[in-house]
Design a protein around this nucleic acid. Structure first.
Length: 437
RNA sequence: UCCCGAGUAGCUCAAUCGGCAGAGCGGGUGGCUGUUAACCACUAGGUUGCAGGUUCGAGUCCUGCCUCGGGAGCCA
């Protein structure tokens, strides 16, 4: 019975307005139902939307109506009927049902239309994905990823995939996941950056897009142990170029999402007026200016340190769009950052802080391109030079000024969707205390 | 790793001073032709996270452990 329709072109709920007055068949699941004697209201969900199907016993007869009485939440169903506009229907359209097929009867679906706690929902993440709100968030995530790819592709960047297994750390080793790689140790990547530098020397403008892993024992709303990052890297580009690229990227993402997802923003109750202001240019402030803002706000921030989560919120609250803080003290930044020739104590780096307290969404800067200086920095950071010989080759053979950055997808989604926690921005989050489902 | 907080029905939560373990949702049965997380009536459903201790009596107090949540540091 199923094989007769399983591969056929289907009508989806998101396109329902096009079929007004026509008889159609919808394939999906029962989201919820309300029975009222000889009248049944069935909410059918098909992944693209939810639509109310009205069934009257007088129209379909006792046998079919009995299926409506029996069908349970999240049972898979096929409904045939006429599309009509009706003010009383949520969404403005409904189906006047003529037939209902139950493909599979679900028994005791655990997630009810009432409220649930975080732990319970996270344990049922594989089912929670079916909910209206999670559907909206992950559709917005999809568009964010799509617009990132479009942004770079349109500017003729080449997508170069970075490896997941890496031989050594590019920053601290305490945050690496160690794996057994035959008779040696390998680590899950925490950044594709060093490989992108190699690729930039080969292709000019490149980016990678993939998962990264950090074994930080962090339990905050901004941390995942597995998260996705896009990392562009450009040869013959300096810090200013990186900042321009970063602000153009973020403004483009916001524009695309606002254009496409008004309906999803309504579902997740996101006030989009705070996104309408996100236009270039973004403010650029020196680390010293940021420090001054914190001092005036009475923060316990110590000059010379990196900013804490609360400090980032204080700084970002001064602006109605993301703010870029540049030239941090070189000491708090990674070995590959180039020092500012005008002030050797500063790194040519930039962090972009999202508005509304969402914190750092971008970190990047200009890379050290001088061979001798880089060697010194590797020594100063107590890193094994042997592991970086291939990286040093990039400074031996045609070194040029180059820059790039990394944008964290989940934090960007959390900010754009106005979510409290990054765990809802990825289909199956990996957290310090969660590896299931 | 450190600092807080919470574990009671399938789920969300109550239970006053230490004194009969309860409600809503979900499940079951019946009713209802315009419901909007439908509603109404009835009904089943419990090793109060685990192990000890105090007490006439512990969901409640004490000790240890486990799990989860919030935050810090670190980061995207």
């Amino acid at each position: 019975m199923l094989s007769s329709y399983i591969n056929r072109e289907k009508v989806y709920v998101e396109d329902i307005a096009k079929y007004e007055g026509q008889k159609i068949t919808l394939y999906g699941w029962l989201y919820n139902k309300r029975l009222k004697g000889k009248l049944a209201f069935l909410l059918l969900r098909d992944g693209t939307g939810i639509i109310q199907c009205v069934m009257s016993v007088a129209d379909v007869g006792e046998a079919i109506f009995q299926r409506a009485e029996e069908v349970t939440q999240e049972s898979s169903i096929v409904i045939t009927g006429q599309v009509r506009a009706d003010q009383r229907a949520p969404g403005g359209y409904e189906i006047l049902a003529e037939d209902l097929q139950i493909v599979h009867l679900a028994k005791d679906y655990p997630i009810t239309p009432k409220e649930h706690g975080t732990t319970f929902l996270m344990d049922h993440r594989h089912l929670w994905l079916r909910s209206r709100k999670q559907n909206a968030i992950l559709r917005i995530r999809h568009t964010i990823i799509q617009s990132i790819r479009d942004f770079f592709d349109q500017q003729k960047f080449v997508l170069i995939d970075a490896p997941i297994f890496t031989p050594a750390a590019c920053e601290g080793t305490t945050t690496l996941f160690e794996t057994d790689y035959f008779d040696t140790k390998a680590y899950l990547t925490q950044s594709g950056q060093l490989y992108m530098e190699a690729a930039a020397m080969a292709f000019g403008k490149v980016y990678c897009f993939g998962p990264t892993f950090r074994a930080e024992k962090s339990k905050t709303r901004r941390h995942l142990t597995e998260f996705w990052m896009v990392e562009p890297e450009v040869a013959y580009m300096d810090l200013n170029g990186a900042m321009e690229l970063a602000e153009n990227l973020v403004a483009y993402i916001v524009e695309r999402v606002l254009d496409k997802h008004q309906e999803q923003f309504k579902v997740i109750e996101r006030d989009t007026s705070k996104l309408e202001t996100i236009k270039t240019p973004f403010p650029r402030i020196h680390y010293d200016e940021a420090a001054k803002i914190l001092k005036e706000a009475g923060s316990e921030f110590v000059y010379g340190d990196d900013f804490g989560g609360g400090d980032e919120t204080i700084i970002s609250n001064q602006f109605d769009r993301p703010v870029m803080v540049h030239r941090y003290p070189a000491e708090v930044k990674a070995f590959y950052m180039k020092n500012d020739p005008e002030d050797q104590s500063r790194a040519l780096c930039v962090d972009m802080l999202a508005p509304e307290g969402y914190g750092e969404i971008i970190g990047g800067g200009q890379r050290e391109d001088d061979y001798d200086t880089l060697i010194e920095k590797i020594k100063k950071h107590n890193l094994p030079q042997s592991a970086f010989e291939w990286y040093l080759d990039l400074r031996r053979y045609g070194s040029v000024p180059h820059a790039g950055f990394g944008l964290g997808i989940e934090r960007t989604v959390a900010w754009i969707c106005g979510l409290h926690h990054v765990r809802e921005t990825i289909p199956f989050p990996r957290l310090m205390h969660r590896l299931y489902p």
